[in-house]
Design a protein around this nucleic acid. Structure first.
Length: 245
DNA sequence: ATCCCGAGGG
DNA sequence: CCCTCTGGAT
């Protein structure tokens, strides 16, 4: 435990707000979640799928690729490879041809083959519904596993991708850069039933407003509750944001 | 040039 | 921790 300055004393000048109580932190997180829910009522998983296997495959393919482009290849993919065994037995070149527009197509083709083989070998061809089992599958990391849990099985999962990690830090929810630690920090702030949708909202917001390089703070509904408001903008933009608010 | 809801390997 | 895998949009 490190000593903290007494409340109300001449506060040390720091960029971030002084440490809040656990209760206040949770209230801020809930407020953020509600504001984002209002702003992005259509936030959801944007990958097209009808089964856990389809979502698992689509999520593996979504690495460094837009969901829109994944959705362009998955109809062909799902028709051609209807089950885990089909991916395991697919000719490598045939798989690569379908995946080529996505980027990383050789690695992704290998992932899908290995994934199909592992599902057949260890799970009777079915997609497991626990984090531990999912992350053991080749090509499936913690982020992919949580997407499948939350969106195919309805099991609360926190998806820490580039957006969720960045927004969690800007919102003061975490100071960590390690995704697993960020996940724990978010888990302590929001109730499990909010986890999956909260992540979708954070991702929507990250893509449309809270950009990595040039966040549009002037257009952000979280301006009043965000400890990072105004950071990362040019002076001109900061001034514009202030007069707009 | 930089960015996309990453994962695995060195 | 870094690097690589990859291509299309902006």
């Amino acid at each position: 435990m490190t000593a903290r300055p007494a409340a109300g004393s001449a506060a040390p000048t720091r960029r971030t707000r002084r440490p809040r109580s656990k209760k206040a932190a949770k209230e801020q997180a809930l407020a953020v979640d509600e504001l984002l829910a209002r702003q992005w009522p259509d936030a959801r998983c944007e990958l097209d799928f009808t089964t856990p296997l389809e979502l698992l495959v689509a999520t593996v393919l979504s690495a460094q690729t837009t969901d829109k482009r994944v959705n362009q290849v998955t109809p062909t993919l799902f028709r051609r490879y209807p089950d885990a065994a089909a991916y395991a037995g697919a000719p490598r070149e045939e798989l690569e041809e379908v995946l080529r527009p996505l980027g990383f197509y050789r690695a992704k083709a290998a992932s899908l083959q290995g994934l199909g083989a592992a599902l057949v070998a260890d799970h009777a061809g079915e997609v497991p519904d626990t984090l531990e089992e999912l992350v053991k599958l080749p090509g499936v990391g913690r982020k992919t596993a949580n997407v499948v849990l939350g969106n195919a099985f309805g099991i609360p999962g926190i998806t820490v991708d580039t957006h969720v990690g960045r927004l969690a830090r800007r919102l003061g929810w975490s100071r960590e850069k390690d995704a697993v630690k960020v996940e724990k920090d978010i888990a302590a702030l929001l109730p499990p039933q909010e986890w999956t949708m909260a992540c979708h909202r954070l991702i929507f917001h990250g893509r449309r407003v809270c950009h990595s390089r040039k966040p549009a703070c002037g257009a952000c509904v979280l301006a009043e509750v965000c400890p990072s408001f105004g950071e990362g903008e040019t002076d001109r933009e900061k001034a514009a944001a202030l007069v707009t608010v």
